[in-house]
Amino acid sequence: MANILVLDDDIQICNLIKMILTINRHQVRIAHDGIEGLKLYRQQKPDLVITDVMMPHKNGIQIVIELKKHDKETPIIVMSGGRRAITADFNLESVKLLGVHDTLKKPFTDEQLLDAIKTALPSPRVLAK
């Protein structure tokens, strides 16, 4: 069981991820924009951050950059459905360069999500804590 912070401006996406992760016994906190996400991050450091790229106020890339400045440990998974004339692949390729652990291309399935979480989290032992 991990403490996971989910950032997406789409409420339904957040709810979906929350539901999937809750069923799989994770603790989930949700933020709908970058600034709110950073606030929640500071309140309690999560085991994993899942963030969208296109978000108001601070986008996913900015979040990744900011988080990586202080915290190289916490794994980050970036989701993207692409944006203005840029494919999702491109978005996700570029965030990998930033040291993101895994990427999820929307639309994704629950298995893909859970697999990504499994790979991103440090080790089963940490989970066992």
Binding site: L16, G81, G82, A88, D110
Partner: peptide, 20 residues
């Protein structure tokens, strides 16, 4: 492709919740 982001979001939601 500009609104692909929105579409992919919606598909994720639809597929995800259907499965759930």
């Amino acid at each position: 492709s500009c609104i692909a982001h929105d579409f992919n979001n919606l598909l994720t939601i639809i597929l995800g919740f259907t499965k759930l």
